[in-house]
Design a protein around this nucleic acid. Sequence first.
DNA 1: TCTATATCACCC
DNA 2: AAACGGGTGATATAGA
Length: 608
Amino acid sequence: MNPTPDEFREIWVLDFEFVANPGERANPVCLVAHELRSGRTLRLWRDELRALKESPIPTGPGSLHVAFFASAEWGCYLALGWRLPERIVDLFAEHRLATNYALGKDHRRALLPLGDGLLGAAALHGLDVMTAVEKDSCRDLIIAGGSWNAEERIRILEYCESDVDTTSRLFNAMAPGIDWPRALIRGRFTAAVARMEARGVPIDRDTFNRLRERWNPIKLKIIAEMDRFKVYDGPSFREERFSRVLTELGIRWPRLPSGRLNLGEETFKTMVGFHPELAPIRKIRQLLAETRLFKDLAIGSDGRNRAMLSPFGTATGRNTPGNAKFIFGPSAWVRGLIQPRPGMALAYVDYSSQEFGIAGYLAQDRAMMESYESGRDVYLAFGARVGIIPAEAMELETEIAKARFKTERKQLKAATLGSQYGLQAEGLARQIGRSVTEAADLLEAIKRASPGYWRWSDGAVRLAMLTGRIHTCLGWRTITHRDTKPTSLLNWPLQAHGSEMMRLASCQLTEEGIGVCCPIHDAFLIEAPADEIDRATARTREIMAEASGIVLGGPTLRSDAEVVRFPGRLLDGDSRPFWERLTGYLHELDESTTQAIVKPGLFSCPNP
DNA sequence: TCTATATCACCC
DNA sequence: AAACGGGTGATATAGA
């Protein structure tokens, strides 16, 4: 099948206006849809939309749906209980693809002065559009919500229609440059995105609320208990105060090229080694760093975290959900808030060593493929080939081998992953705490053990620089530049193909009705009734394997799964201590509040 | 007082 | 010239 727009009986360009409150599902206000062949236009206000059991636009394969940032449209479809369309092209995704320059943010802004929104994309094609100011004022009117008078309704509908008009013209401008078969896969993914965004992640809202309400007291408590040197001013660290403490103690502290104090954790670690009296300051900084970013999580009234996944946000095609809103954005301890509802269960299913597998199979590197297929721990198996792990380790039971060669495995893992994005000996040495020579030897040994991968990778990087393009098998690509860092290109195919397989899997999973809460780069969080979770998990793993097989042209990747049943939480071992510390503080603060409330007198007033 | 920049910490 | 990939976002200080 090689569809082009000519093969669709109908081409519908559509846009909803909707109210989107943080954590809540979309609340549609109106829909305008324009059919390009017949010239028909539909204009529907919210009450008319709600009266419809299905979309007024045929959702079957004969009609193409065109939208800009299409997942938002499908969010409205789902809110209305409508079936999602089967054929979609998202002009945002196609615009991102067309302008996916391997350049920094500043450079990109210069090339796309109006940004990556509808206006920016339209401007790029020389289309005249309303000004951003007009757009903002209409947006404000919609966001204000509630009831709009007749005049406002007309204004909102006209605004919506003008976006549809812009999108239609953008479609005509972009259509000749679109790679249709692959664009339709990307479009199909936007429907999957909407399904995942609509489901969201179940949250222990009570704990979240208490933690949020008590966050300031907790923060100040940590500081009050530990800030002997008074380097904090309320909740803020003051460089100047810290600098004065250092002078008083006669300590020379490393500085950045800018002349400012180097306040990185690495530096603190080293310096505390020499001056243990500074340890509490380091500890406070660590604690406060871990507790940032959780207060703005978008939690809906039904206690579910819903955040825009922002598909196609990165150069490699990954999603870019806002870290402040998305529960998987902040530190891992925040996942303690993720809890299945009674009777339900969650499973976190992630690809096993996804990038390692992609590297091995794309390059057809014997050592990497065989290590992956050994069925053992990939790093132990590969380590044996590299010569870092003794061959006897392969005879041991995996968990025993992992424990016995813990240090070697850790170093090898860091070196293997690092080598796939150009980590140098100095960086590796720092990371694994060994000498630069040892780190260099390790990197060298890895390269010797997997010559096929390095030949392939070197060729891919050169080709990208030569042709100015690098692409995945499913058509995601980046436009390179003479300033593109070779290290970016080194990692690009691995991350970009990982992203492709996540998109394919997202489609299949959500279309089959698996309860996908969200994707997390190389993993899915799924939800099911407790007695169905094992089956759902097994099916998820099959689908993820199938998706990897399509992307890799045959070979498949494995996955690992962790199941959590009510009242469990999605916490890993490393973040549990901090979670417990925080809930401990919460408990203390709750108790002191309770004591305050039951002080004599407070309840002695008779009810009026 | 507001904004821009640099730095840092977190995620996969 | 540098050499740790792709991101988001908070914070402290410098600068307008």
